[in-house]
Design a protein around this nucleic acid. Structure first.
Lengths: 208, 208
DNA sequence: TCCGCTCTTGACCATTTGATCAAGAATTAA
DNA sequence: TTAATTCTTGATCAAATGGTCAAGAGCGGA
């Protein structure tokens, strides 16, 4: 039986390798069909392992899902962490928006994985949302608020500003099909979407 | 057997009543668990009918789902339809944003139903997206573009502007759990969120 | 009242699916 | 080489689930 996890990761070469294989396949499947909509068989087939073999590494379907969420969650918040209180507000927020748009296009599956989880009430990562995520957001909201207090950017609720950036950027991953249906496929969205959002957020609609 | 639908809706009192009952229950269930995650039993229990009885009105689980989507789709686009080329651009767009925020709070389940459907590739309403929805969006994007050409609002890609309004407003329905986890529950979001989005979209972040 | 149609249900079925297990194959450390 | 450990799998199970069916109950118009 593969090492639980409590006492250090004493993992075999094969173990490490197969776990990675499984998580990659699981991202593929879970992001497309959601937790309930995905079957262990699908994931097993997607990574070329037999079902019992897959369940040798992760004993329950849920274990794969949770491991995948945790594994992906780290990177996903990196751009927000990088928001620098010492930098120029407009530059920092512009970079953040650009980074998020790029991530949504480069790794839409991760975005959809989270979107699905949260859409269904975040049964697995509820505590993460209320804990580490809230802390990070509060911290960065405070940074943004300080910029506002200093008159360097317009004053709006910083939490809602962060939500606005999240939603607009992740939209291009989560609602990809809709965007493609309306714009037509094959267009390079990353640039257009990014530029539009930047102008919108920085300048607003009212002409000066 | 209940009337198919081709030759006029010759529906019994009981039929109309029960179909409404079923659709209401189905919205409850499907919006919470998605199509694959919901069971016919759940829906039956939610509306107090026996499973075979429910399947007497909708022969397949999918039929309930599709009927529900179609039933809800109409209202959902109403605010966009109301965008008036003859009105004041800022007023029109402000109203649209406000309406969408309100709808997301008043009927978050409908929002989640669509979000889930699209997130999973819109298997049932793909044609709707590429047809009627694209047409409506293109039409309204042209209206917005004409406002821009007249210099009445800043020039950005109108399609992406619409996406931005959709995503930011529906975020408060679809990602409700996350929003609640970060802000704390029980706060009246509608006003704060609406005001913040209005300021952001109209004024932008750069101070004047 | 009576008859045809609508509605309702308990019992049942086939399939899917998450999970187990025992036994054999491969790998590794000695 | 050998023995212990890790890895792999075919067979199998129990539960969940979408859907059917025949028979009975209820309703509405003549």
């Amino acid at each position: 039986m593969p090492q639980a996890d409590s006492s250090g990761p004493r993992k075999t070469r094969i173990q490490t390798q197969n776990e990675e294989l499984i998580l990659a396949a699981a991202l593929e499947v879970f992001s497309a069909y959601g937790f309930r909509g995905s079957t262990v068989d699908q994931i097993a087939k997607a990574c070329g392992l037999s079902k019992p073999n897959l369940l040798y590494y992760f004993r329950r379907k849920e274990d794969i899902y949770v491991a995948l969420l945790e594994h992906t969650l780290r990177d996903w918040l990196e751009p927000l962490r990088a928001l620098d209180a010492a930098g120029d507000p407009i530059d920092e927020l512009s970079r953040y928006i650009r980074d998020k748009v790029r991530m949504s296009r480069e790794n839409p599956k991760a975005s959809r994985l989270f979107a699905n989880e949260i859409l269904h009430g975040a049964p697995m990562i509820g505590d993460f949302l209320k804990g580490p995520l809230k802390d990070l957001v509060d911290e960065k909201a405070a940074v943004i608020a300080s910029w506002m207090a200093a008159g360097r950017i317009n004053t709006i609720d910083p939490h809602h500003l962060i939500f606005a950036i999240w939603s607009t950027t992740q939209h291009y991953a989560d609602f990809d099909v809709q965007v493609a249906a309306i714009l037509g496929d094959g267009i390079d969205l990353t640039t257009t979407a990014g530029d539009t959002l930047l102008t919108l957020f920085i300048q607003g609609l009212r002409p000066r």
